[in-house]
């Protein structure tokens, strides 16, 4: 199981490989904000403070959206496009409430 710590909500949730961040947010009752949920609107942009390598790779659309927004791309992800790809480890996420 991977531990996902949602810093802004102070929630630590253990999830199996393949879990999407949309599921994490819903199950945890987190205040993470989603818009279109398909990677177009950038509402769900968040900082992955650690554990970026435990998440699936960015797809072309996500890279394009993040590049247009600017900022530190090595830390940013669109939460609606993320899922956990590893069995073990800890991911820390802040979405800036």
């Amino acid at each position: 199981m991977v531990s996902v710590y949602l810093q802004d909500d102070n929630i630590k949730i253990k999830v199996p490989v393949g879990t999407t961040m949309k599921e994490v947010a819903r199950k945890a009752g987190a205040a993470m904000e989603f818009g279109c949920r398909v990677g177009d609107c950038s509402t769900c942009i968040a900082h992955v403070k650690s554990g970026m390598t435990l998440l699936n790779d960015k797809n072309e659309k996500e890279i394009k959206v993040l590049e247009m927004i600017g900022g530190n791309l090595s830390e940013l992800r669109l939460m609606c496009q993320c899922s956990v790809k590893c069995e073990e480890g800890e991911i820390v996420i802040s979405y800036g409430l």
């Binding site: 102070n10 929630i11 630590k12 253990k14 999830v15 945890a28």
Partner: peptide, 12 residues
Amino acid sequence: EITMGKLVEMEI
């Protein structure tokens, strides 16, 4: 307690 900052731990 959660409002006062207690860490919530859960599992999917």
